[in-house]
Structure formats: C-alpha cells, structure tokens
C-alpha cells in the first residue's frame, strides 16, 4: 500500500561459521549440507567455535567439511579420525574435539579404531553419516547398506548369505562403557532436524562435561548413488531406512551415573 513503511528482518540465513564454498561440493539433494549447517548452529549456540577442532574422515566429508566450517579442522586418512582426535584431545583437554565420519570410514576400515576410542572412554564427539553406501567412490556396498539394496558391488541387491548384515552403529555404541550418549537422527523433516540438533548439542555437552564419548548417527540421503530424486530419497528414508535404523536415543547418562571416583 502506498506510503506504508516496510521493515525487513532477516529471519533465515547461513550460520556465521558456514564458509561459502567456491564451488558446489555436495550433490543436489545430499543431506551433508544440511548436517554441516546443523553442526555450525550447534557450535555457535554452545559458544564453542573458538575451541572446537574438527576431524573429517575419508568420503564425501573429506574435502568440503573441513573447508566449510570456520574452525580448526583437518581431514583424516580413511578410518583414523578417532585416533587422531584422541591425541588432539589428550594434548589440549580444553579443546572440544569431534569427528565427522561416513559409514565406510567409521564402519568398515575404521571400525577397530573407532571401537577402541570408545573403549578408552575418550572425551570426544562423533557425527556418523550413514547413507548406506560409499558415496565418493561410486556407490559401492557399505557396512550400512540395507538388505536387498542394490549398489555397484551388490548389483543383485545385498544378500546376507554372501555379504553379511547391516551395521547398527548407534545401538552398538550404546553398549560400550565409555560412552555417555548415543542417538540416531535424521534431517529429512524439519521436526527431525530440530531433534537432531538437540542430540548433537547433547553429544557435545557430554564431552564438555567430561562424562564420556558422545555419538550421533545421521541417516543421510545420497540421491546420486541411490539413483533416486531428492524427494524420493526422503521417501526412501522414511519408509526403508527408518525401518532398518530406527531414530532414537539409545544412551544418555549424566555425571551422577559415573562411579564417584571418576566424576
């Protein structure tokens, strides 16, 4: 209407920590970008961006994630982020150290490294990106590929008689004594994004409070390798992935549950 004063308020934008990338790293419809955003928001809201150190595993997280978040960050050799994070945290206990690892990185080549970091009860946080395949190398079978799913190395669909069974990381992690928090989340709806953000915050908080390892598994879409459109990926997550990998909080202990002498 004529003469009316229009005021503009920014209600949505990139987090301050999100570094604009010079070119597009993630495929259209990939959830990694959303998860990067979520990590940035959590670091900002906890006010820990100044003492955060990130470590990215090999896979689609390798290059872009260290570049995209404006904190100290390193890419790691395949599967070894928990070992490297262990040293950084032990040397700088005041730092908040976290790894971002894919399912091949954490669940296959780096499973031993990851499990042993949990066993040692390291005060670390791990964001585990489960897209049920090897994204970077062309969609081969991952430890998390669900039964019957076609990949470039299970062309007839994953058959447990020859390729075994999917890895349920969040449930497994929850059984380990050194772990303070374990949850599985998705970002395929706004409600799930909010829940996921809370989970990641808690996982960082457990480290900051010195209680134990914090772990959050994300179900993440891979349109390119799933050979599905981005909307169909959301459907695949809500219909297939969630059935195999139910989102839930599997462990959440606070300081009162630790033996008195360890508090």
């Amino acid at each position: 209407m004529k003469g009316e004063v229009v005021t503009r308020e920014k209600v949505y934008g990139s987090p301050k920590l999100r570094v604009p990338l010079p070119f597009r790293f993630f495929c259209p419809g990939c959830h990694y970008g959303v998860i990067v955003r979520l990590i940035c928001e959590v670091l900002e809201e906890l006010g820990i961006e100044g003492r955060a150190v990130g470590l990215a595993g090999v896979g689609c997280s390798f290059g872009p994630i260290p570049v995209a978040i404006d904190i100290d960050f390193t890419a790691c050799p395949h599967g070894r982020a928990p070992a490297m994070a262990t040293a950084i945290k032990r040397i700088h206990p005041e730092a908040v150290v976290f790894t971002v690892q894919g399912d091949g990185d954490l669940g296959a080549i780096g499973l031993g490294c990851f499990m042993n970091a949990l066993l040692r009860g390291e005060k670390l946080t791990t964001i585990f990106l489960n897209n049920a395949c090897y994204g970077t190398t062309g969609g081969q079978m991952a430890p998390t590929t669900i039964l019957g799913m076609r990949t470039t190395t299970t062309p007839e669909g994953r058959d447990p008689r020859t390729t075994g069974y999917p890895l349920h990381a969040a449930e497994l992690v929850a059984t380990m004594k050194g772990v303070a928090y374990s949850a599985r989340c998705t970002v395929h709806t706004p409600g799930n994004f909010r829940r996921a953000k809370k989970a990641v915050k808690t996982a960082f908080q457990k480290q900051m409070d010195g209680i134990g390892y914090g772990f959050v598994e994300f179900l993440s879409a891979c349109p390119t390798n799933w050979r599905l459109s981005p909307p169909d990926c959301l459907k695949f997550i809500s219909e297939k992935m969630i059935t195999e990998y139910p989102p839930a909080e599997f462990k959440n202990i606070d300081v009162s549950e630790l033996p008195v002498e360890w508090r």
Binding site: D70, F73, T74, A95
Partner: peptide, 17 residues
Amino acid sequence: ALKGKALKDGKRKFFVS
C-alpha cells in the same frame, strides 16, 4: 597447530591435502 582458533591468534587452520 590445531587446538581451537581462540586458543591461538583467532585465525583458523585447516588441512585437507
């Protein structure tokens, strides 16, 4: 060194390759 940018000169370091 990686230790959190606030713990040094405020500038972040990152290493990819």
